[in-house]
């Protein structure tokens, strides 16, 4: 066993995601406290990996790993973790990290703490703050045993501390990658044509509280009066009330408008990831304990329909 902290970095189209740098920064802090090294792990060839401030960077360079493949990535990461036995393995609680972190935990019989908002060393042990239950409760958990997997929410740590130029050591895949049951076919980029919500200065954003597709019109009217576009949280898009191009959050788009007016969005961590940098956030929600009120600049515990209709009359 070592006291090293591994970071499973993430890249798409040759570019590392912010969460990769955030985790490397955090790993340096943890490694210092544990007396180990911060090791950035890059799975995949064809990506410039000398970009981290890690103590070392390992790049598993194999053509079969150029695009994310949960089966292949899982096998490679499992082999590396088994061989090097790090104290902590940081994943992003992201579309890719979520495919591997809990799987690896069950495979190796080591703990996994997900929805991680913070990780720290206390009395020689690792303690993780997990933002569970849609952001309504924070669980402080201590993983038991010699290795801990921690899946971190994007945007939890500063990215700058992880940026650097450590030269990556390229290695061949530690496992045989022939005979995979899962094969990458193609990347499908979003079809253009719809409003680009990332380019808007004002957004009226609707959540589950909007109640149904028939009520989207009210948000559209309000947006039109404000010179804004309508965006949404994931449940609205999953329900088919608005197209995927309007989705803000982890699996959607990141926006930074001058105004983000939220109607019926509770503020789950996945949504906050996409909008917390907006300049002015106003939230209207009937649940006075909705987590969004800890993030918004202004809030009102009120019926969104009544407020929206009254605003229409005044604008």
């Amino acid at each position: 066993m070592s006291n090293d902290v591994f970071v499973i970095t993430e890249h798409l189209d040759g570019k590392f995601s912010d969460v990769s740098f955030e985790m490397v920064g955090k790993a340096k802090e943890l490694a210092k406290a544990l007396g180990g090294q911060a090791v950035a792990v890059v799975v995949g060839g064809g990506v410039e990996a000398n970009v981290f401030a890690s103590d070392s960077t390992i790049q598993v360079d194999d053509a079969a790993l150029s695009q994310f493949n949960p089966e292949a990535y899982g096998k490679v990461i499992e082999a590396l973790v088994k061989e090097k036995a790090p104290r902590v393995v940081l994943f992003g609680w992201t579309v890719t990290g979520m495919d591997v972190a809990a799987w690896l935990s069950a495979r190796l019989g080591v703990p996994c703490a997900a929805y991680a908002k913070d990780v720290r060393v206390e009395g020689g042990g690792v303690v993780v703050s997990c933002q569970a239950y849609g952001g309504k409760l924070t669980a402080e958990v201590a993983p038991e045993g010699e290795t801990a997997i921690v899946a971190c929410l994007a945007g939890s740590f500063p990215a700058e501390a992880g940026q650097g130029a450590t030269a990556a050591e390229k290695i061949a895949s530690p496992v045989d990658l022939s005979g995979l049951k899962m094969k990458f076919i193609e990347m499908v980029k979003p079809a253009g044509g719809d409003v680009d919500i990332t380019a808007q200065t004002k957004l009226v954003s609707v959540g589950r509280g909007i109640g149904g597709k028939e009520n989207i019109e009210l948000a559209e009217e309000l947006a039109a009066k404000l010179g804004a576009a309508v965006s949404a949280s994931r449940p609205v898009v999953d329900a088919g009330w608005l197209p995927r191009t309007r989705q803000v959050g982890k699996s959607g788009l990141k926006v930074k408008p001058k105004l983000y007016l939220m109607l019926g969005i509770s503020g789950a961590p996945e949504h906050l990831e996409g909008m917390k940098s907006a300049e002015l956030i106003i939230a209207i929600n009937t649940d006075k304990k909705a987590p969004i009120f800890n993030v918004a600049h202004y809030g009102a515990t009120a019926d969104l329909f009544e407020v929206a209709e009254a605003m229409l009359e005044l604008l």
């Binding site: 089966e71 935990s105 997900a114 569970a132």
Partner: peptide
């Protein structure tokens, strides 16, 4: 929302020795 120790899907895959793909 209560997956503090991760999601059941990838764990079922690990226990059944099947590949997993999420999202």
């Amino acid at each position: 929302s209560n997956d503090i120790d991760g999601q059941i899907g990838p764990m079922i895959a690990a226990y059944l020795d099947m590949p997993y793909i999420g999202g």
